[in-house]
């Protein structure tokens, strides 16, 4: 077997190569392009393939950088004044944090051709909503009956040991727990009622995963049959050939819009507006509406597919529940710590 030798010159070249690769995003921007953060996986693939040519046609190069919401914020916070991304793709839970930390700026809607195609609920002052996810219960109809709502998951023995929960790291989980607090407690902030449910039932504690990503993997393995998720989770599972259905709980489905935001200090504002406009483009959104992404199109010119309209119609948009994330974030630290300690006890 050949010996592996690394001399000083090779080591120097490797270090220089690694350093150069870290400069790629900056180089992309220096050449008139922008770096847009996008969720990894199907989002990333769809945005790269559909939006890159549209942004190019507007005269800019687009670099799609995959990163989860928390990672996007962490990276931008780590380099104030020289953000790692020109635009962020996040939900209101993270948007509240971004505004509080002065990471994003208000946009000028007159610079977006497709702005008028958006319903008022999707015209945010900090950026447009490109899709809206509906959160609820994802279940496997081959294994469990269709749940009526969250109460069913706690009280019907058919779900015992088959439901997966997760902590307050997840926006989806936070929204579900506020609903569960309404059912079993005095209101959406009465999280003690939720903690009591978990404290009194060891089976529930055993079904808690560290992150929502792990729930998808466990669902694939048949390890769990129910979890708190979104319409996009169902679309993704179906695209993998798995049987999955979505249920809107009887308490209603909170909306989780996904917005594009302009980061403070972006050196490519013109390109960022071109990118936002491309993401709102009717043709692009019609493509995103098809499997495997199945995103609800916020551009009103796009006709809803039967799959999408079975979950949400345009008339229902105005009536969706939008949680108060500023209020939630005030308690989130305390809720997170209490829940972790409770589950590990």
């Amino acid at each position: 077997m050949n010996e592996f030798r690394l001399n000083r010159r090779m080591f120097g070249m490797l270090v220089a190569g690694a350093a150069a690769s870290s400069l790629l995003p900056s180089m992309a921007r220096a050449s008139g392009g922008l770096v847009a953060a996008t969720f990894p996986g199907s989002w990333e693939d769809a945005y790269r393939s559909v939006l890159t040519p549209l942004v190019k046609a507007a005269g800019y190069d687009l670099t799609v950088a995959p990163a989860l919401s928390q990672d996007q914020l962490t990276k931008v916070m780590a380099s104030p004044g020289a953000p790692a991304f020109d635009t962020l793709l996040i939900s209101p839970g993270q948007m509240a944090i971004a505004i509080e930390n002065d990471l994003i700026v208000k946009i000028d809607p007159t610079r977006l051709k497709n702005w008028s195609k958006l319903a008022p609920a999707f015209q945010g002052e900090y950026g447009p909503t490109v899709t809206v996810q509906i959160d609820g219960i994802v279940y496997n109809p081959d294994v469990v009956p269709k749940p009526k709502g969250y109460r069913d998951l706690f009280e019907n023995p058919a779900y015992a040991g088959k439901v997966s929960w997760t902590g307050f790291d997840s926006n989806t989980a936070v929204m579900a727990y506020t609903q569960i607090a309404q059912i079993f407690g005095t209101g959406p902030d009465d999280m003690d009622a939720v903690f009591k449910l978990f404290k009194d039932n060891a089976d529930l504690r055993a079904g808690v995963t560290d992150t929502t990503n792990h729930q998808m993997a466990l669902y694939q393995q048949g390890e769990i049959a129910v979890f708190m998720g979104s319409t996009n989770n169902v679309a993704h599972l179906k695209s993998l050939g798995l049987n999955a259905e979505f249920v809107q709980p009887e308490t209603g489905s909170p909306a989780s819009p996904v917005n594009i935001h302009l980061t403070k200090g972006s050196a490519n504002v013109d390109a960022a507006y071109a990118y936002m406009d491309a993401a709102l483009d009717a043709g692009a959104q019609a493509t995103f509406e098809a499997p495997p992404t199945e995103m609800f199109p916020t551009n009103s010119d796009v006709e809803l597919t039967p799959n999408i309209s079975s979950v949400l119609t345009r008339d229902q948009v105005a009536g969706l529940a939008y949680p108060d994330w500023v209020s939630i974030n005030k308690y989130r630290d305390e809720w997170t710590s209490t829940f972790i300690a409770l589950i590990a006890s």
Partner: peptide, 10 residues
């Protein structure tokens, strides 16, 4: 640790 240990083993 997170994927295999789950939330019970922190």
């Amino acid at each position: 640790q997170a994927a295999i240990g789950g939330a019970r083993n922190v």
